[in-house]
Design a protein around this nucleic acid. Structure first.
Lengths: 229, 229
DNA sequence: GATAGGAAAGGACATATGTCCTAAAAATCA
DNA sequence: TGATTTTTAGGACATATGTCCTTTCCTATC
């Protein structure tokens, strides 16, 4: 199967065939990334708009002091490079493939030439970006209002339910402790402390760097209704 | 001067005459709010898109437990209700007039009918929303990476420089301590502690609930380059 | 001007979180 | 298999921040 066909299959699958005008459709390309590969790096010049159509990615930022903060994990459909396209700025956050990943990409130049005023694209971007905004808004308030214990409970709930949906089988709701710490914005050490508490209460089990959820009910009690998003 | 004329003056002033199509222009109205008045409340049904054209507003959210977090202060031009319009959701945050405020308002119904695919409006919204997103993104990372001392220094820098620009005269760079605490997401008590430190170092002066900046240089040293936005 | 009421500042203590280091466990390699 | 290295878990202590309460200072009022 040719790339163009694959691309069209994805566009149909996610019902975004009409997002790009004719002239642009031919100029879409399909980029594949291996697990662990960096898709784009904070601070670099942004050139392409990407649409995640297959696999899972991780978006994170690194502080001047070298600390890492995971901003989100994303599954299809998701857009990367949208903010940078519109604002004309360098890449804000680093994006890395967590599994094998396929992305449809379009150069900014093409979009600027053929799709600057293409309402379907603009509406699509608005939709995606407002969703991102809302998510970011809730994480901000959530992080400032609640302690790590609540945030971790909430994160475990959100991740474990998502994993359920994907046909991952036994590995099911495994969560890497280091990821959790970086996502919540706290130290590995402190997450470990909280984990001990959860363990003592029989809410989770631990296995070599990973957690899996035993009692969603118990976690819900801790998290209140404050599930991520 | 008729409202319509005033509205047109503002549209010209902020160079957004072409954002709305003809049919919508006639349906714009001008709403005025007194200092302290609530413009829209978290959780309510959203009905209008607002454009802030005069005065200063405060956007904040309240947690289930009743704690308040100030998300931002905004000056013209700013849009309120954009996310809600696009996503079709209830109002996310409460917005309150800090000074006397004028806003141009348009019912969602009008926009949906006449401007759903009006590229200038869509591009305008994209511009505003991506800016908001970026700001929120930086506050999130900033809040998670740095302690209150750094955040307060950074906030004081950002506010005092903005105030300079406005012709406020002597009151210049006065900052309310309670506002600062709520914006930074910490307790009044703790901000007070940090203030004592700043006072001891001669960075600021205090006067009955307000701070004013004495040494931007000193604060900069504390904040690193991490000025808000 | 004296006084009551309310807002602002600060003290004392508890809790949350970070840093640094050590112990335990697993993985790697000879 | 045993030794070495790497990764993970946890201990000890320091710092950051929250809560509650007391004190201090302003301001309005008579």
């Amino acid at each position: 199967m040719k790339n163009l066909e694959i691309i069209n299959t994805y566009l149909r699958k996610y019902k975004i065939e009409s997002v790009f005008p004719e002239e642009v459709q031919h100029l879409l390309s399909l980029d594949n990334f291996a697990e662990g590969e960096v898709i784009c790096s904070q601070g670099q010049l942004a050139k392409n708009l990407y649409i995640l159509v297959e696999g899972k990615i991780k978006v994170y930022t690194t502080s001047a002091e070298g600390r890492t903060l995971i901003l989100s994990f994303k599954n299809p459909v998701e857009i990367i490079g949208d903010i940078e396209y519109i604002r004309g700025i360098d890449i804000i956050n680093t994006v890395e493939a967590v599994s094998a990943v396929s992305m449809i990409s379009v150069p900014y130049a093409v979009l600027k030439k053929y799709a600057k005023d293409h309402a379907p694209l603009l509406n699509f971007l608005l939709d995606i970006i407002t969703e991102k905004f809302q998510l970011k808004n809730s994480s901000l308030t959530f992080n400032l209002f609640y302690p790590v214990e609540v945030r971790l409970a909430s994160y475990l709930l959100s991740v474990s339910s998502q994993e359920m949906e994907s046909p991952d089988g036994e590995k099911g709701s495994m969560v890497h402790i280091r990821d959790a710490a970086n996502l919540i914005g706290t130290s590995y050490r402190h997450v470990n402390r909280v984990i001990q508490k959860f363990l003592a209460d029989g809410l989770i089990e631990r296995q070599r760097g990973s957690i899996y959820v035993k009692s969603r009910e118990g976690l819900k009690r801790l998290a209140g209704d404050n599930i991520y998003e």
